[in-house]
């Protein structure tokens, strides 16, 4: 779905979106595009969903050998023509395919990227400049992987790569780039290692905990008797079933320690640290005794 274009941009080049998922995830040791965070969906899917609201068409940038991978295969793809020059290869391939378009480029390893950050970039877009980007809250340099590249950036970018350079940050620093301050200083923290993944995920879980969720809890067997009910609808800020059980155990005389229970979310076994979402149905499962 394309957003309503600002009146100032009525004559601006059409805006297409590109999520870069062609990386090798070497430091993470796992494919960053298919990693899921506390918001649930694989990161590539989440990035595509964020992007789709703002652009006329959205693509995922891949290397040829990645195109059949299940999450990437769900989306229209643009395959890199050049290898081993990093993220700039994805943008070059996209510009070659649609030279008339401006490209909103997103890395797929920005789990903290929020709607407010994208919306601000879109509002501030300057089609008469080469690019619109954020100024890093860490080092003051342009953030190249959440930025809009206008069609006029295509020729200088090709020349830059032809000259043997491949750093998109330095390209933007040397070009006519409109630089903006970030509304949320952590939104563009990229995640490259398992440690960074853990820290970003903790942040997301803390943020989701601030909002109360509507949950239903069903009780069976001993827990049903101790709760005095078969089910209830409640609002809770518990980020995961672990905190939810502690919350309920403070209200009811539960005698079973959580280590003795299993948990199900939406009628499927789940981990105690699964992030709870609005609308989830939770069941705590006492030791079973069928047969």
């Amino acid at each position: 779905m394309a957003g309503t274009p600002d009146r100032a941009h009525a004559s601006a080049p059409p805006l297409y979106g590109l999520v870069l998922a062609g990386g090798r995830s070497t430091r993470m040791g796992r494919d960053k595009a298919t990693l899921s965070y506390a918001h649930g969906a694989p990161q590539l899917e989440r990035a595509m969903a964020l992007l789709a609201r703002h652009v006329q068409r959205a693509y995922v940038s891949v290397r040829a050998e990645q195109s059949a991978e299940a999450v990437r295969a769900r989306f229209p793809q643009i395959v890199d023509a050049l290898d081993d020059i990093g993220p700039i290869a994805g943008l070059l391939a996209a510009q070659a395919q649609h030279p008339e378009a401006a490209w909103l480029v997103l890395a797929c390893d920005l789990p903290l990227l929020d709607e407010a950050t994208l919306a601000h970039l879109l509002r501030a877009r300057a089609p008469e400049r080469t690019a619109t980007a954020y100024r890093s809250s860490h080092d003051g340099l342009p953030e190249p992987l959440c930025a809009i590249y206008e069609p006029r950036s295509r020729e200088p970018l090709s020349a830059y790569v032809a000259a043997g350079k491949q750093c998109p940050r330095k390209f933007l620093a040397g070009a006519d780039t409109l630089l903006l301050d970030e509304p949320n200083p952590r939104a563009l923290d990229n995640v490259n290692t398992p440690t960074e993944y853990g820290s970003a995920n903790d942040t997301l879980i803390r943020e989701s905990a601030v909002q109360a969720k509507h949950l239903t809890v069903q009780y069976y067997a001993l827990l049903r008797e101790q709760a005095g009910r078969r089910q209830e609808a409640l609002q809770s800020c518990a980020p995961t079933p672990r905190e939810l059980y502690a919350e309920l155990a403070a209200r009811y005389p539960f005698s079973l320690a959580p280590e003795m229970l299993r948990v199900a979310v939406n009628a499927e076994f789940a981990d105690w640290s699964t992030p709870l979402k609005d609308g989830d149905a939770v069941v705590f499962i006492p030791p079973v005794a069928g047969g």
Binding site: A221, L222, M260
Partner: peptide, 28 residues
């Protein structure tokens, strides 16, 4: 099935009391 399927069994004893199998002793 006995190990994995969420089914519970409550025994009612001749002595008049009752208990959920696998839950009561472990509970204390």
């Amino acid at each position: 099935v006995k190990q994995r399927v969420p089914i519970w069994k409550k025994e009612h004893y001749l002595s008049g009391d009752s208990g959920w199998v696998n839950c009561e002793r472990c509970a204390a």
